[in-house]
Simulated assay, not measured.
Amino acid sequence: MIAIPAIDILDMQIVRLYQGKYTEQTNYDLDPVHYARKIEESGLEYLHLVDLSGARTGQIVHAELMKEIALKTGLKVDFGGGIKTREDVVSLLEMGANQVVIGSLCVRDPELVCSWINEFGTKRFILALDTDGTSLKIHGWQENTGISLEELMRYFESFKALTILTTDIRKDGTGSGPNVPMYRSLIGKFPNQRWVASGGVRNSSDLQELRAVGCYGCVVGKALLEGDITLATLKFFNDAGV
């Protein structure tokens, strides 16, 4: 399992939200590019970069920041937030994104997203399917769709090794531990996909649990920023398989 550090950007600042609520955010006095360099210097390879401004407004806001990080580090950066068109996908890939993260559009127009996957390949995309335990939420988790994750998967389950990042928003930013049973269930129902966990990770024991149930990866945000998990711990976990 790959443990992946995350940076959430709102108005050019690193932040963390509590359960996805923009009214409950914590700001961190860190320069995003400098922090990305620290991640690279620790020996890690991947970075999950979330454009919260783009997710909230419905259009990409922080693409230039992604480009700068891609140019100034050797990190494999995935980027999501506000992506709406094929032109957005092409532009982000040309600017250096390793993978493009598609969220709201997966629900709004899954056929279109499927056409992009067919055109560019499964390795170029991460689907961000975020749930409150009952239904998917989109547009920066501000809109409840009434559609379950399992229902939506009928559009994507035929793809092999498609990376799917699923956040239990009840856990996100809480430090209360990940929803391990949810990931166990999803992996059991859709074993051909690469499931990436997000939300609530506190320590290396949580990482071990997620690995044990078969997660392909895990995104770690707040625990890193608060010092509960270090970049060195992530590197050791990735290398040693602890």
Rank of each mutant, 00 (worst) to 15 (best):
L136G: 12
H62M: 06
V77C: 14
K84N: 14
V77N: 11
M95T: 01
S104E: 05
S104A: 09
K72I: 02
A128W: 04
V50Q: 09
K76E: 13
G121F: 08
K123E: 15
I126M: 14
R108D: 11
S158P: 01
V90P: 12
P110H: 03
L129C: 12
V100M: 09
L52D: 08
L152A: 08
E157Y: 06
F120W: 13
R124K: 15
T134R: 14
L75H: 03
G82Q: 13
D132Y: 07
Q59R: 15
E68F: 01
G140S: 08
A70M: 07
P110W: 00
G140E: 09
V77A: 11
T134Q: 15
T131A: 12
E157V: 04
E151P: 06
E119K: 14
I126W: 11
G140K: 04
V101F: 04
E143K: 06
G81V: 09
M66C: 09
F156L: 02
Q59D: 10
L47N: 09
D132T: 05
K76Q: 15
M95I: 01
L136R: 07
I69E: 05
F156N: 02
S115K: 08
L105T: 07
I126Q: 12
Y46V: 06
E143L: 03
D109W: 02
Y155G: 07
S158N: 08
L49E: 06
M66K: 10
A55R: 10
R124G: 08
G103M: 00
R154C: 03
D78E: 15
I138T: 12
T73D: 11
I126V: 15
D88F: 06
R56I: 03
V89C: 12
I60E: 10
L136F: 05
I147S: 07
E151L: 01
I102Q: 05
L112E: 08
G74V: 05
D51I: 05
I138L: 04
L71P: 02
G80V: 09
F125L: 13
D78G: 07
Y155T: 01
L52M: 07
T122D: 12
E151V: 01
G146V: 00
F79L: 13
L65T: 07
K72G: 06
G74C: 10
R124N: 14
I117S: 13
S135M: 01
G140W: 00
G146E: 00
G103Q: 03
S158V: 01
L127M: 13
Q99V: 00
S104N: 07
G54I: 04
G140I: 01
L92K: 12
D109Y: 01
V101E: 04
